[in-house]
Simulated scan of single mutants.
Amino acid sequence: MAHSYYAYTPSHTAAMVFAILFSITNVGTVSQSIRYRAWVWIVMVVAGLMESLGYIARSLSSENPEKRGLFIGQFCLIVLAPVLMAAACYIIFGRLVYRVVLAESRTMKVLWVPPGLITPIFVMCDIVALLLQLGGAVVVSGTQPTDNNAQKKINTGKDIALAGLAIQIACFGFFSVVALRFNIISKQFDTEYEKLTEDEKYITVNETGRKIRKNWRPLLRVINVACILILIRSVYRVCDFALGKSGYLEQHEWPAYAFDAAMMLPCLAIFVYWNPGKYLPYVGFRMPKSSRVN
């Protein structure tokens, strides 16, 4: 009998349900991003696509648990997609800060991060975390018990992935604190952004003629919610890798859906309604200097 890469009998139904839910949600993400021309949000689109493909691959893998390629593919896609979701939060938070905080208020004391490096610092940490998790995930998921030095390979891969997750949690944890604190003190940043038009609800972007919502705080709150969901999932993955293949989390399937899939689906879904393009006038790949509050 061929060796199964799972320590349990994987559920085809559960994988298909989440594959469908992520696919539907990602359609909404794509359509809203096009509607609001939020091209920078392509990072979240790619993350959603990875989740969709990951659970499609998992549904196929559940019927062919001995197939190494399918197992590695679904594992890597599902493990790495949240890293891109975190990157999307970094990018949008950086855009939000530059849009609503006056130049003289953008200080280390207020933001706890160098103002001009908010996005680069966190994204670079994310890239390092992504590469380490990718390397570790490939080693762990691709090692069979019958391989030479199998346990040593698994331990090495686990340690690499744990290092990536530790970097992600440390970086994202700090970012979550920064974003939450900014949410608490944000009322002091009622700038010209909210006074550009007499319309009570919308601001017209002169360069494009399109309207965006004047109240930007819902977007900030949604970022805070996304941070909590991603942190819960990241802690789960740390425990998963730390306990190893003989641990409870590897021996049972339900935690993967409860603490990963069920966390990442709403993280993607909430941004369908609260799309950054609704609240930020410049969500293209480059933000014009003239768009920043001075």
Results as ranks from 00 to 15, higher is better:
residue 2 A to I: 00
residue 2 A to N: 05
residue 3 H to W: 07
residue 8 Y to N: 11
residue 9 T to M: 14
residue 12 H to V: 15
residue 12 H to W: 13
residue 18 F to T: 04
residue 19 A to E: 03
residue 24 I to K: 04
residue 25 T to I: 10
residue 28 G to F: 09
residue 29 T to F: 00
residue 30 V to R: 03
residue 30 V to M: 09
residue 31 S to F: 13
residue 31 S to G: 02
residue 33 S to W: 07
residue 34 I to L: 15
residue 37 R to A: 13
residue 38 A to G: 06
residue 45 V to R: 10
residue 45 V to L: 12
residue 50 M to L: 11
residue 53 L to P: 00
residue 54 G to C: 03
residue 57 A to N: 04
residue 57 A to E: 04
residue 60 L to Q: 13
residue 61 S to M: 06
residue 63 E to K: 14
residue 63 E to P: 01
residue 64 N to Y: 11
residue 65 P to C: 07
residue 67 K to Q: 15
residue 68 R to C: 10
residue 72 I to T: 13
residue 72 I to G: 06
residue 76 C to V: 15
residue 79 V to L: 12
residue 81 A to R: 00
residue 81 A to F: 11
residue 83 V to T: 09
residue 85 M to K: 01
residue 85 M to Q: 05
residue 88 A to N: 06
residue 89 C to S: 15
residue 94 G to F: 10
residue 99 R to E: 04
residue 101 V to M: 09
residue 101 V to A: 02
residue 101 V to S: 04
residue 101 V to I: 12
residue 102 L to Y: 15
residue 104 E to V: 10
residue 106 R to N: 07
residue 107 T to Y: 11
residue 108 M to R: 12
residue 109 K to D: 15
residue 112 W to Y: 13
residue 113 V to F: 11
residue 126 D to V: 00
residue 129 A to Q: 02
residue 134 L to M: 08
residue 134 L to N: 06
residue 135 G to F: 05
residue 135 G to N: 10
residue 139 V to P: 02
residue 140 V to S: 05
residue 144 Q to R: 14
residue 144 Q to A: 10
residue 146 T to I: 10
residue 148 N to G: 11
residue 149 N to S: 10
residue 149 N to A: 08
residue 150 A to G: 02
residue 155 N to P: 03
residue 166 A to H: 06
residue 167 I to W: 02
residue 169 I to F: 03
residue 170 A to K: 00
residue 170 A to C: 05
residue 171 C to E: 05
residue 171 C to R: 01
residue 178 V to D: 11
residue 179 A to P: 02
residue 181 R to A: 10
residue 183 N to W: 12
residue 184 I to A: 13
residue 186 S to M: 08
residue 188 Q to R: 10
residue 191 T to M: 01
residue 191 T to H: 09
residue 191 T to P: 01
residue 193 Y to T: 12
residue 195 K to G: 01
residue 197 T to W: 09
residue 199 D to V: 04
residue 200 E to N: 10
residue 200 E to W: 05
residue 202 Y to W: 03
residue 202 Y to S: 00
residue 203 I to K: 13
residue 205 V to W: 07
residue 205 V to R: 07
residue 209 G to M: 05
residue 210 R to T: 13
residue 222 V to K: 06
residue 223 I to H: 14
residue 223 I to C: 07
residue 224 N to E: 06
residue 232 I to Y: 01
residue 232 I to N: 03
residue 234 S to I: 01
residue 234 S to E: 01
residue 234 S to Q: 02
residue 234 S to M: 01
residue 235 V to S: 02
residue 237 R to C: 07
residue 238 V to E: 11
residue 239 C to G: 04
residue 240 D to L: 09
residue 240 D to N: 05
residue 242 A to Y: 08
residue 244 G to P: 00
residue 249 L to G: 05
residue 250 E to S: 14
residue 251 Q to R: 12
residue 253 E to C: 00
residue 254 W to Q: 12
residue 264 M to R: 03
residue 268 L to W: 00
residue 269 A to T: 03
residue 270 I to A: 01
residue 271 F to A: 02
residue 276 P to M: 02
residue 280 L to I: 09
residue 280 L to C: 05
residue 281 P to W: 11
residue 282 Y to G: 07
residue 284 G to Y: 15
residue 285 F to M: 05
residue 286 R to G: 06
residue 286 R to Q: 14
residue 288 P to Q: 13
residue 294 N to L: 01
